[in-house]
């Protein structure tokens, strides 16, 4: 056991190395538009977007070990903030994006500071209630969010005079890839920084961490704010890409979906989280009744006989099974795996 701990400590404090794997991944992903299929690119954009969101959530749930059930609230705040900045205040997308992220961070701090002194369960519940309140406000604050009808005709990004196109979303795809790369870069730096190590210490043992002089509330709040900023950034991208916003895109089930991605890939593991997001987005497409029926066509299964709820049953089952048999995820972060193995060893 001591051996394992030693190894874990070394890997998390290791010097920064060029992330060849990531570069290869981004290079390969950059080839997707070559297929020229805009449906596939749309799916790719969602995979990248959800990877960004999942990496953000991963700061809280993976790095700090706190369950955030309302992450989608920040996503929604970012999306609506960007829409208001761009359409109502006529700001460019490139200004609205960082502004939205900053606003997300602000809300993260405001919500986190009073809540994070409580234990995990209460934190989970407060975040959940918060995201439901965000929905309620977007639905009823009609003068700003355009209310229940949804926010229509959101502006598109313009880069050097080129206006992005939604129907053939190559430009949006590369924008998503750029934001994704930025997120990965920041996450990798955070992971190996003093901040990241403080988070891991909090996750492993709060009391010991505090005894080592780590300011629990400060570090947790900072983590929450950074996570919220990435959520809001994802939201701003989504607003511009989809062109309309509707409150129903920010419900609790989205939070669960993002959580599912993090859990499946591996709590705390950056490559794992990206893997989880890509797999789940693909699954979401594959499990659509029509797509499934097309795949099962040789068996003669009609789409109408496939329940639309199927994918949610699969997600739920995944959560249960992963927690039971592979709590560290498909691609575990090394010290998380060690921790779970330890739990298993010490369990009676």
């Amino acid at each position: 056991m001591t051996q394992r701990k030693g190894k874990a400590a070394r890997s998390s404090s290791g010097a920064w190395r060029a992330p060849w794997g990531w570069l290869a991944f981004v290079a390969a992903a950059a080839c997707l538009p070559l297929t020229g299929n805009s449906y596939l690119m749309g799916v790719g954009i969602y995979a990248l977007l959800f990877s960004i969101l999942a990496m953000g959530l991963n700061i809280m749930t993976g790095f700090c070990g706190l369950l955030d059930l309302g992450y989608v609230g920040f996503y929604g705040i970012g999306a609506y903030a960007a829409a208001v900045f761009m359409n109502t205040h006529e700001l460019s997308f490139w200004v609205a994006l960082p502004l939205a992220a900053a606003l997300g961070a602000l809300w993260g701090t405001m919500l986190g500071a009073p809540t994070l002194r409580l234990t995990g369960d209460y934190f989970a519940i407060v975040t959940f209630g918060f995201s439901e309140l965000v929905i309620l406000i977007t639905r009823n604050w009609t003068s700003v969010t355009k209310g229940a009808r949804g926010f229509p005709d959101i502006h598109k990004p313009v880069l050097f005079g080129y206006e992005f196109v939604r129907f053939n979303p190559t430009a949006f795809y590369f924008l998503a890839l750029a934001l994704f790369s930025l997120t990965v870069f920041v996450m990798l730096r955070l992971e190996s920084s003093r901040l990241g190590r403080a988070w891991f210490a909090i996750r492993e043992d709060e009391i010991a961490a505090e005894a080592c002089g780590i300011n629990l509330r400060g570090y947790k709040t900072l983590g929450f704010a950074i996570a919220a900023a990435f959520g809001a950034m994802g939201g701003a991208f989504y607003a511009s890409f989809s062109g309309t916003l509707h409150w129903s895109a920010f419900t609790f089930s989205e939070s669960v979906l993002i959580l599912c991605m993090v859990v499946m890939g591996g709590l705390g593991s950056i490559p794992g989280v990206v893997l989880g997001s890509c797999l789940l987005v693909m699954m979401q497409e594959g499990l659509r009744p029509q797509n499934l029926a097309a795949a099962l066509a040789p068996l003669g299964v009609p789409a109408s006989s496939i329940p639309g709820e199927l994918r949610w049953i699969v997600y739920g089952a995944l959560l249960i099974l992963m927690m039971r048999w592979r709590p560290a995820g498909l691609w575990p972060q090394k010290n998380v795996a060690a921790e779970f193995a330890e739990e298993a060893d010490s369990a009676p």
Partner: peptide
Amino acid sequence: RPLRDSPRLTALITAIGVSLVLQNLAQV
């Protein structure tokens, strides 16, 4: 029960999974 000695996070996530499965099973 199998998770009684695991971190709380694990059990909470499992609970969400159970809720998802049951609700959608009822829809089916």
